[in-house]
């Protein structure tokens, strides 16, 4: 049942997409109130992991427990209830393009609560103040820069005061200032509100600076885990290649196939 230390427990989880194995016997635990990062090269299914936690996808084998409940076995209404306790920051922001910033943040409140419009206004402005965009509440999503859109999306993810917020590649494609703002926001929101944060990212520097605990996944398996210090001093060559950003190593530089000499010799005939 409910585990006081860990909010999300992924046990012996397998996930297949068609014939392709995305996850192969993965075990991950996410501690309450901490920032946990999941890192790995592009295309290793990091985003898929967040979708599995939120029940947008179902594991092929094994279990994904959130607050002790198996996400894969929940019925529709239970799933919908659970998701209200979750906020997710999508890579694209996923703001509703047809309504303005204020309405975007008010959306989940209007949908799931019976609060008066006056109270909703206070809450929305409060959330926007927290991300520094109170004065942008009238703008439409198309008028926002990439960094601003992500902050608005963050304010929306927090609207219902979730227990857990998941960030899908929050730093990708951001300028240094926007990046610094996001790092600061993620940390301060996590600590001030006592929520649990899960970050999926391949931006090394920022993630190492912010996470309390990191999982590194590659080839469908967890190849390393630990605090940022532990990972930086790891012996494992695969983890070191990733953490130090080396072009060649256990993840080869060359796309696998026949040796170069074969091609060169074939040219002669």
């Amino acid at each position: 049942m409910r585990n006081e230390d860990y909010i999300v427990e992924i046990q012996k989880m397998h996930f297949l997409r068609g014939e392709r194995k995305i996850f192969d016997d993965v075990n991950i635990r996410i501690a309450r109130g901490k920032i946990t990062a999941v890192m790995g090269p592009s295309g290793t299914g990091k985003t898929t992991l967040l979708r599995l936690i939120s029940g947008l996808l179902k594991a092929s084998q094994g279990s994904v427990l959130v607050n002790g409940h198996n996400v894969g076995k929940m019925n529709r209404s239970h799933l919908m209830r659970m998701r209200r306790e979750m906020g997710m920051l999508f890579q694209s922001g996923a703001l509703f393009t047809s309504i303005n910033v204020f309405d975007n943040i008010a959306f989940p409140l209007r949908e799931h609560t019976k609060l008066s419009e006056e109270l909703i206004r206070y809450i929305v402005l409060m959330k926007l103040q927290a991300v520094g965009l109170r004065n942008a509440h009238q703008l439409m999503p198309r008028e926002l820069s990439g960094g601003m859109a992500r902050r608005v999306a963050l304010a929306r993810a927090m609207a219902l005061d979730p227990e857990i917020i998941m960030y899908d590649e929050p730093f990708t494609g951001q300028d240094p200032i926007a990046m610094a703002i996001l790092v600061k926001l993620i940390r301060s929101l996590n600590d001030a509100l006592g929520i649990t944060s899960v970050i999926v990212s391949h931006d090394l520097h920022e993630t190492l600076s912010i996470a309390d605990y990191i999982y590194v996944i590659a080839g469908g398996k967890v190849i390393g885990e630990g605090t940022p210090e532990q990972l930086q001093n790891t012996e494992s060559p695969a983890v070191r290649q990733f953490i130090q950003g080396l072009p060649d190593g256990p993840v080869p530089f060359h796309y696998p196939g026949k040796p170069y000499t074969d091609d060169l010799l074939a040219e002669k005939h």
Binding site: R51, S54, L56, M80, R81, R83, R84, M86, G87, M88, F90, Q91, S92, G93, A94, L95, F96, T97, F107, P108, E111, H112, L160
Partner: peptide, 18 residues
């Protein structure tokens, strides 16, 4: 299609809205 591509449909689902 655009709402799907920009993850707006997933966003709705994650807010517990069908």
């Amino acid at each position: 299609g655009l709402m799907k591509a920009t993850e707006q449909l997933d966003g709705l689902q994650l807010m517990g809205i069908d």
